[in-house]
């Protein structure tokens, strides 16, 4: 079973994403901002992180930059999942070390397609 950390300041989005990912047999943890997510990754690194862009305390891009700069044995797959859907944001995310990018609104089919892209299902 793969583990997934859902990082989003919206409880509703986290709940929807959780339901979809649990259907694909993922073990789910949640964080409401980038700082909480960094703390979660300190104890156990998930296999994949579903990451929002705009969040309080620490945004998704800053979290990703911190995560990739941190020495770690395991490199988690990071999939941005955000309403920022222009080329500049997408390019910035990929340059910072994201593996895939989902433009909201998402549905089960898109999540599945992206997880297949990164080889997790």
């Amino acid at each position: 079973m793969h583990s997934c950390l859902i990082v989003d300041d919206s409880k509703v989005i986290r709940k929807v994403a959780r339901r979809i990912l649990e259907d694909f047999s993922f073990d789910i943890d949640e964080a409401g901002d980038g700082q909480q997510a960094l703390d979660r990754c300190g104890s156990a690194m998930p296999d994949v992180i579903l990451l929002d862009w705009n969040m309080p305390v620490m945004g998704g891009l800053q979290f990703l930059q911190n995560l990739r700069a941190r020495p770690a044995e395991k490199r988690p797959t990071v999939i941005f999942c955000t309403t920022e859907n222009d080329m500049e944001h997408i390019r910035a995310a990929m340059d910072a070390g994201a593996d895939e990018y989902i433009m909201k609104p998402f549905d089960r089919e898109i999540i599945k397609a992206k997880l297949e892209q990164v080889g997790l299902i």
Partner: peptide, 20 residues
């Protein structure tokens, strides 16, 4: 559409072969 380019197409290919 945004939905269509997210099915089967990697983000790298989206950036490489499409314009918005």
């Amino acid at each position: 559409t945004q939905f269509e380019v997210q099915r089967g197409l990697s983000t790298h290919r989206l950036l490489q072969h499409f314009t918005k």
